[in-house]
């Protein structure tokens, strides 16, 4: 047996993992938090436990398939109170790309109390660590051994301000001023994270980060690049913020200068993509609805 000098008198917070039908992406990343020095959960004063009865925090991955549901609930039930539950990856949070399948029972919080969510698909190990750090702090508070959280061995290894790894695909950003309302993003999004609906005087754009899998496909197909991928990957949050983690925008309709019919504005980005450079004629035509534009052009030829 390996023996180690006891540096820290505080007993570690014990983590128990449950795979609720994941694609294994999150689980492989969790394995990294057990095996790779720079992501080691031990620096948070945590350790993995093989038995639910000897655990404090539950980490759930996967969308909670019907087939595993009862097993998962039983294992979760075996973890003694006060337990803290962390949903790792968008699967247990919203169903992710597997949402509305006949075989999926989740989201997990329909069946068990979830305390912390870690969006991502899969989330970066450092994002998972940030979620575990939140959960550990909460558990210490609930169990009455608070205030003694050990300092992480390497400061910044999980904190919110840590520099983003080079080129990481983080949450999406929406620029309403560039959106032409073509709905391509909504069409290509596998997670159903984007919704565009007509709301009185314009279009309302909503993107739920807890459904998004950070694939960047919406940005790829967006003709005006109104959607862009940012490097913000640190999104772990407490359950009460689950539904407020969104990106929103509003695209107001404008009135056609010819007939007054309401329409979507032609954004500068669209004109750049279509014509590269604009001229006074294009600038004038862009304020007209398609019908008036057609009339004008036809008239122009006749004259």
């Amino acid at each position: 047996m390996e023996t180690r000098p006891v540096i820290n008198p505080i007993p570690p917070v014990r983590l128990y993992r449950i795979n609720a039908g994941s694609c294994n992406g999150c689980d492989v990343e969790l394995a990294a938090t057990a095996a790779v020095a720079s992501f080691d959960v031990e620096r948070l004063g945590c350790c993995y436990s093989e038995s639910p009865a000897e655990a404090d925090i539950v980490l759930i991955t996967g969308p909670l398939t019907l087939r595993v549901k009862d097993k998962v609930l039983r294992l979760h039930g075996e973890v003694p109170k006060p337990k803290v539950t962390v949903a790792v990856g968008v699967c247990p949070i919203s169903g992710g790309v597997f949402r509305d399948s006949y075989a999926v029972a989740g989201p997990a919080d329909d069946y068990l109390p979830v305390d912390v969510n870690v969006p991502g698909c899969p989330p970066h190990p450092r994002a998972i660590l940030a979620g575990i750090a939140k959960a550990a702090a909460l558990w210490r508070e609930l169990s009455g051994c608070g205030q003694t959280l050990p300092e992480p061995a390497v400061p910044g290894s999980y904190d919110e301000d840590a520099a983003a790894p080079l080129g990481l695909r983080g949450k999406m950003r929406f620029n309403a001023a560039a959106c032409v309302g073509c709905r391509m993003c909504e069409h290509v999004c596998a997670g159903g994270a984007i919704r565009i609906d007509e709301l009185g005087p314009g279009l309302r754009f909503t993107l739920w980060h807890n459904s998004c899998v950070f694939c960047g496909l919406c940005s790829h197909y967006c003709p005006t690049k109104a959607l862009t991928v940012t490097d913000q990957w640190q999104l772990s949050h407490f359950q009460e913020d689950k539904f407020s983690l969104t990106e929103q925008g509003f695209i107001p309709f404008v009135a056609c200068t010819g007939c007054g019919h309401i329409m979507l504005p032609a954004t500068p980005e669209l004109l750049r993509v279509s014509y590269r450079k604009t001229n006074p004629e294009i600038e004038r035509l862009k304020t007209l609805c398609p019908e008036c534009r057609q009339k004008q052009s036809l008239g122009g030829i006749r004259r």
Partner: peptide, 18 residues
């Protein structure tokens, strides 16, 4: 069957891009 997520069903409900 524990990780059965109904993929054959899901792919028919999603378009090529999704």
């Amino acid at each position: 069957g524990h990780v059965h997520r109904g993929m054959e069903h899901l792919v028919m409900k999603r378009n090529f891009y999704q």
